[in-house]
C-alpha cells in the first residue's frame, strides 16, 4: 500500500488556525497589544487576578489554547511552504521539523501550563 501523506493533518491545523486568525485575532491583537498597553482600555482588563481566573475555567483554557496553538500551526505551515517560493530548496526535512516542531512544542507547553494553572 502506498504510504499515506501527512499533508491533510497539517493542512487541517493550518485551516483551523486561519479561521481563528480571521475571526478572533484582529480584535485580540487590538485589545492585548494596543488598547490595554496604551491605556484606551482599563488595565484591569488584563490584570493578573482576572486573567488567572479566566485561565482557571475550562472555557478560558480552551480559548487560550486555541489562540496560541492554532495560529502557531497556521504560521508554521505557511512559513514552511514559503521557503519553496523564496527558492530555498535545501534542508527541506530540517525546516519541516523546525516549523512543525515549534508549533508542536508551543502547543505542548500551552497545554501543560493550562492544565497546571
Amino acid at each position: 500500500m502506498k504510504k499515506r501523506s501527512n499533508e491533510p493533518v497539517f493542512w487541517s491545523l493550518f485551516g483551523a488556525g486561519g479561521v481563528v486568525v480571521a475571526f478572533i485575532l484582529p480584535m485580540l491583537v487590538f485589545i492585548t497589544g494596543l488598547a490595554v498597553p496604551l491605556g484606551f482600555l482599563s488595565p484591569e482588563v488584563m490584570a493578573y487576578e482576572r486573567i488567572h481566573a479566566f485561565a482557571s475555567c475550562w472555557i478560558g483554557k480552551l480559548f487560550i489554547l486555541a489562540v496560541i496553538s492554532l495560529p502557531l500551526w497556521h504560521a508554521a505551515h505557511r512559513i514552511f511552504l514559503s521557503l519553496h517560493d523564496l527558492g530555498i530548496h535545501w534542508g527541506r526535512t530540517f525546516f519541516k521539523w523546525l516549523c512543525y516542531g515549534l508549533a508542536f512544542l508551543g502547543t505542548l507547553i500551552s497545554l501543560i501550563l493550562l492544565v497546571v494553572i
Binding site: 487560550i64 496560541i68 495560529p71 505557511r78 500551552s110 494553572i117
Partner: peptide, 26 residues
C-alpha cells in the same frame, strides 16, 4: 500573494507573545 504569506510571520510571533504571557502567568 507574498504579502499574504508574510502575514503568517506576524501571526506566529503574536502567538509566541501570548505564549510568553501564559508562561509568565503560570
Amino acid at each position: 500573494y507574498m504579502i499574504r504569506e508574510a502575514t503568517s510571520i506576524f501571526v506566529g510571533i503574536y502567538a509566541l507573545v501570548l505564549l510568553t504571557g501564559l508562561v509568565s502567568l503560570s
